[in-house]
Each structure stands twice: as C-alpha cells, then as structure tokens.
Design a protein around this nucleic acid. Sequence first.
DNA 1: ACCAGATGAGCAATCGATTGCTCAAATCCC
DNA 2: GGGATTTGAGCAATCGATTGCTCATCTGGT
Lengths: 333, 333
Amino acid sequence: MKNGSKNISIKDIAQFTGVSTSTVSRVLNDNGRFSDETKRRVLDAVEKLGYRSNVLAKSLRTMKTYSVGVIVPDITNEFFSKLVLGIENYCYPKGYLVYICNTSEDREKELESVANMEARGVDGLIDLGGVAGEIAKSFARKVPVVYIDRRPNMTDATVIESDNYTGGFIATEELISKGCSNILLLRDHRDLSTMNQRVNGYFNALNEYDLPIDMNNIFRVSVSKEAAESCVKEILESGKDFDGIFATSDWLAVGALKALEVYGKKVPDEVKIVGFDNIQVTEFVNPKITTVNQDEWTMGKTAARLLLDSIENNEESHQSVQVPVELVRRETT
Amino acid sequence: MKNGSKNISIKDIAQFTGVSTSTVSRVLNDNGRFSDETKRRVLDAVEKLGYRSNVLAKSLRTMKTYSVGVIVPDITNEFFSKLVLGIENYCYPKGYLVYICNTSEDREKELESVANMEARGVDGLIDLGGVAGEIAKSFARKVPVVYIDRRPNMTDATVIESDNYTGGFIATEELISKGCSNILLLRDHRDLSTMNQRVNGYFNALNEYDLPIDMNNIFRVSVSKEAAESCVKEILESGKDFDGIFATSDWLAVGALKALEVYGKKVPDEVKIVGFDNIQVTEFVNPKITTVNQDEWTMGKTAARLLLDSIENNEESHQSVQVPVELVRRETT
DNA sequence: ACCAGATGAGCAATCGATTGCTCAAATCCC
DNA sequence: GGGATTTGAGCAATCGATTGCTCATCTGGT
C-alpha cells in the first residue's frame, strides 16, 4: 500500500452521506432496514468516492475469506495444471480466489503449506495428488478438504478421481480386441490408489476375455520415459514373449515405444501399446499413442464444486466422485 | 471455520499468562521490552495452548498480507506454468503466498482480477503475458506490478523478458551457418514486444551476414500449428523459393514441419527450421526441432525477486531485465 | 386521539493483533 | 541518598467492517 492517499472506508462514506457506518454497511450488504432515499445517497457516495470494500476487515469479522488453497505437486505437469484450471474456472465466478502451493512432492512442504493456508484463513483446501493424503491426519484441520486423484488412506474423505478402473479395463480391452493375447503391464512402482485401480481394470478385462493373468507380466518402474525404456529393453533382451503393453501412464508408453523402436519391433504390427492420461506428446510421437483420456478440467471443476458446496452448506458430505474416461484411438493399436 | 472450539488468540495467551495482550504481541514479534521471565511464560503458553497467529487480523492492522497475485493467461500453457513455478518457488520461502487468476486472454477478466486481488490486499502483482499491460493505466493501482514476457505500452514499468533479440539473432545465425540463404520468418500476427524483438534479431543477423532483407519473407499468422501449417502450405504451393524457416514460436515450427512433410520437402536437407521456446513437443516430433530455449523458471524467480524487493523497500525501481536464452541444436538444422 | 406494530437509523461491541503513550519500579550515577 | 535514566508492562486507540440491541418516529387501526 504505497500511494499515501488513505483508502476510502465505510467511515468515509458514512461521513460523506451523513449516516452511520452501520447504515452504510447494511445498505452495502442489503441486509437490514433503510429507506430508499438513504440507499440512493449511500450508493451515490460509494460511486463518487470510489469506495472498495476492504476484504481483510470483512474477513476478520465474518471469519470467511472467500479463498481456497490448492496444494499441487508440480504445476508444470500438464495433468495438474489442467486440474488447477478447472478449479480456478469454477471458483472465480463464485467469488473465491485460489492460492497455489507447489510442493514438488515434498511431504514437509505439503504439510507446511496446509498449515500456512489455514493460518491465512482459507475457506477450504484442495489437495492434488497428495503424496499420501496425510493432511487430514497430521493436522487438526479446521476447513473442508477435497482430494483429487489420489485417495488418502482414510475412509471419510471427499475424493475426485478418474474412473481408473474402467480406464484400465477399456485400455486392456482395446489391446485384446486388436488381437493381443500376451499383454504386459507397466505401472508406477508406488502403491497409489490410481494405479491399483487401473491394474484392477486390466485384471478384469483379461478375466472377462478368458486370458490368463500372469503376475510376471506386471512391471513396476518409476514414472519416467527413461525408466520405462530401460525396463522394456531388459524385457526384450530377456526374450520374453509379448504382443501388447498397457502403460498406466503415457510417459511409460513413450519410453516403451522408444525401446521397441530401438530394438526394431514394429508398432503396432508386432506390439501394440495403450497409454494413460492423454498427454500432449502422445500426439506427436511416431506412431501416435492410443491412450485413455482423463478429463482433468471436469475433475477440477467437480472438486471445486464439492468444496464450495461443503463450505457454504457447512456440511461434510464425503462423497467420492469418479469422472468418466475415454479411449482415444491413435496409431499404436 | 467449522469446529466449534473457538480459536486461540493472544487474548487467551494473555489471560493464561497473566499479562496484557500488548506484552504477548511484543514477545511474539520480539519488538519492545519485556523480561526473559515474561518471554518464557508467554512462549510456554503459546506452546501449551497451540496458539497460531491470525494472519487476517495482523494484515488488517499492518496493511500487509504477505501475498502476491499472479495474472496468467493460460496456466495449462507450459511456458506460463513454468513461470508460475519460478514465482512460487521464490515467494514461498520468503513467506509470501501466491494467488492465481487465469484470464484466458480475456481483457475483462484480467482487469477484474487485478481489482479483485487488490481488494484482497495483495502486496504486489505479477502480470504474465498481459494482453496489453493496461493494468497500470486503467486502475489507480496501489501496489507494485511486475510484468513478465510482454512489455506494457508505458515507459516506467518493471519488465522481465527473455533476451528475445539475441534469441532471434542466434536462431537466424544458426540457419545461416548451416547454409541457408533464403530464410522465411513466421511470426505472431499481433504486434507483441516479444515478437518484434525476435524479428529485429532476425534482421540484424541477416544484415551481419550480408544477406538481403525481404519483407515478403515475413509471414504473420495466429499462433497455432494449424495456422502455420496452412500458411506454409500456401507458400509451398506458390512456388516461393526458400531453404530456411525461423519460426518465432515452436508451435509455428511444428505446423511448418507438418506442411513440409506433407509436401515431401526433406528437413533438414532441403529446408532447415529453428523454433522458439523449447516446448516439450519439440523433442518428440520427427525430426526433433532445433529451437531457442527460454529459461522460464529464472524469469519467474527474477520477477518475484524484483517484486518482493520493491514491496519490502517500498520503492519503485522500474528495472528491465533480460534473461539469457540458449540455442538448442536438434535435428531440423 | 391513542396504542400497537412497523420502520429507519445509530451506538457500541466485536473480530485479533499492533503500537504510541503512560507510568511505576528498578537501576544508575555522583 | 536523591535525582536521572532505563526497564517492564499495561491502557486504549486503531485497522475496516459487521451486527445485536436500542430508540425515535411513523403508520394504521379503532
């Protein structure tokens, strides 16, 4: 607040209009009794003096800040940035502003950020891909929380996630329908709820189509194309037989594709691949990757909607919403 | 604020300790005089009662919120999300939290967001790629503003931008050094400062290497690979002769590449291309695109540093910082 | 003309923390 | 020992808005 000129407060409006601050406040909030004449004069003064309500003062009094905090592991990850967009797009028109904390998957910072935002009086929190959703446990939290993407290990939480199970199912089904009978699965090495759900879909699809389930077909790697590439290279060198790969994340698919290319395996002729996420590069690699699209924008919007509902109705619903996914057929199947 | 249990305030600490709120406040801020004994007892009480300062109240009194607002056209654009990361990474450790408003290039929302954030008492604002930097003009703004990427049309502003001139120069130089003598330039149709600077670099490189400048070699399109693709197709159909393209944005390069592929022009043998931005897909198209890397993270950090300096020293410096760029050689040159 | 109820508006407390000012007690200096 | 200075701590105003309560005036019904 530079610009020496003191801000205009309701006191100024009151003085200018010749009424009390209470009346000004009541007119401004259309709450309480006042004559049309008074109203007009107050609003005139507001206009004339260029009054803008001091949100801080209002918040202090009402204990409501019209702001929500978003904890995001990595804002530069397009998955998360689309979620953030969805959240912001829902919150802004409703008068809520969005705080961002980027935690870089750092548990310390995650918890600290939550404390920080709570101290600032956010009305609610949205946790994207929280490492373990420990937020609720470690803190005597005072505000509603909605989790996106990763289910915290607790029962009573509001969670928005993709329909990962169906995603895993249709991905596998696509491979099967294109003739694959020996399908490898590449997954994150961590035991994330999302991954587990996708893997379940994979199992059930195999089952449904009378294909054997072989735990040796499941490979856990860290999520990076390099890890996937070297993993698939090893598999190729081992002489293991396979004709399809379900990569539970597109980066894994990209790495797998690279390995296959290096070893001269034709995609999709000899090996077919389905990824997950529908990240941008899937459309630019050659061949373009068939994948399962997640509707992050809708997920973000939904999370925000549930959070604001919970804030405004002051109730804890603890729903669990699954946002539909969609198979995007491209050139690897 | 659900959870009926009233929050602990300094008043509670005061009561518990048997001192006044003033003393508590002074101990907490290590500001003023008090005995070691008092200090110990106050801190004990703070610990025991689990007191957390109410940031709202503090802000109301001190007129400082330790928050900054960021206006971003499109958070899902990797260029912007990296800037945001840089900003957050600098602000967080300094105790500042970051508000995000996504404007979708909508001027209305841009101005409204600024007003909104100012009303919430942000200590400063960072405007990313502001459509025209009208913020300063239209509002009697009260807080310092730093612009990133696009120079507002006013002289006294703090601006962080890439060294676009040098970028344009080295991009063109790369093409020339690889034997091109007839270099097309694809640029955004709008008159953005960034584009103009890159074009100037292009001109000067041509000049430096004694190549003619031909205004007919400059093509203005809207920034999308589709627009670039159809533009380059038209050029190819017209029979125009050229052996190099400097695309002032990678998406334009991607589109150009596509058009050349469709028309059977070999890249880099017959035509060489250099893009700008170093977006992710440049590494995944075939051939991989040579481009000019912008260091968004540094730009974001720098912007945040300048903003916080300006906030804390309560001075307006109005610097203009150019962040170095770097040529990334890949397969299109 | 009188009383009940409706209407318009102000007083003052409150949200939680900060800070200028005051004042008593402790310490110091000569 | 007496005046000057330092030290420790509290009072009360303030930041800007909200809101329960009070009160005077007005309206209407009989």
